[in-house]
Amino acid sequence: MIKTTKIFLLLFLLLSNALAEDIRAIELFKEVRCLVCQGQTIHESNAELAEDIKKLIREKISQGETDRQIKEYLVEKYGDWILMTPPFNNLTYILWSFPFLILIIGAFAIYRQKRSQA
């Protein structure tokens, strides 16, 4: 009885681990651009290179690499272009921070205008 429970538990752990890896893989697929398609992720694409990269990501996950390591590997080989979401770095700081700047300028301008009227 205890033995079967143990086996079940082990099986469950293995399965849930596989499931977790699968979910992680799909989340990563959605973050990686299909290099030979127009604006699709590898998740959506069936192109050969996309399939190869999917296989590679699954292998790297089962080897215990983190999402970050996998992304860094892909960026090293293909450049920032391969990531669907641009990382925050010295190339993209304007892209990420400009919206907030605009927001603050607006808040300041409206506040000043109201105060000068009052």
Binding site: V36, I53, K77
Partner: peptide
Amino acid sequence: NSGRTAIDLGVYG
């Protein structure tokens, strides 16, 4: 044959 080395080299096609 697997295309793995090509990915290592950043090959598109």
